[in-house]
Design a protein around this nucleic acid. Structure first.
Lengths: 137, 137
DNA sequence: CTGTATCCTCTCTGATACTG
DNA sequence: CAGTATCAGAGAGGATACAG
């Protein structure tokens, strides 16, 4: 599958770089969505500092249902970002943790979250400006 | 809104850091979703190397409908990541570009995309292992 | 060209109930 | 505790038509 259907006419060195970056994203769109989806990014961030059991994870990611958390974790496990370790005991105990690859990825996600959070005052200000401009019309 | 409803008992320095990171994400969940949503991240990446007009952007983000692209851009513009410049000419011409804040953010998103892409061979291998293990059951 | 408006579909999501 | 199964609603998303 290709996202890029045409090459910009004004391709310079910088543009060529970006073009490649974007083209590469195509093959990984699904995986990327698992990571950046509504619950994926939160689950990864929650696991960032260490392993968690299913219900502990659920409590940390406020608002997630059992179903969605299970679904999210299954996708992330299949992609190799999350490791699932079940102990065949009664009651069952399952620990979720990040794989080495998952850990690197989570680091970048946390970095993104932190950056966005640091910009929230500016975001809020921008929203206010935008809304006020609309009212004037 | 709070995502964290309990403090882990085993909080050490590292965990406390992660805890804070995660707690901070709460206030910016909506903004984060605009950026990491299905079309948001692709639009940001597409604008990474320079301004684009509406339809050029649409062609670069394969599969996006007019409606969703317009919606996505409006959200990103309102949040202050994207600048929209319309020329009152016939036919109309509208250029979209990243604001300074948007540029920094897009950099992190592109970084994430590139990293995930670089891990795709491992992801694919993990998926194959996972699927094969399932079959055995 | 750059959108907006409308209708319609379909997936995502959450609540509930149930199993091992 | 750690899920799975099922159902129903909400909202994302797409196709089409139309406006400026």
């Amino acid at each position: 599958m290709t996202y890029m259907t045409e090459t910009p006419e004004y391709v310079d060195e910088h543009a060529r770089f970006a073009f490649d970056v974007f083209a590469k994203a195509c093959t990984s769109r699904t995986t990327l969505e698992h990571l950046t989806g509504r619950w994926g990014i939160l689950a990864m961030a929650a696991l960032w500092h260490g392993p968690l059991r299913f219900n502990a994870l659920r409590r940390r990611v406020e608002g997630v249902s059992e179903k969605m958390l299970a679904q999210t974790l299954q996708a992330l496990e299949r992609d190799g970002f999350v490791h699932r370790e079940a102990q065949p005991s009664i009651p069952p105990r399952v620990d979720y943790s990040l794989t080495p690859m998952g850990r690197q990825t989570a680091g970048k996600l946390v970095d993104l979250i932190e950056f966005v959070e640091s910009q929230m005052p500016e975001v809020t200000a921008a929203q206010a400006r935008h809304d006020q401009a609309k009212v004037r019309v």
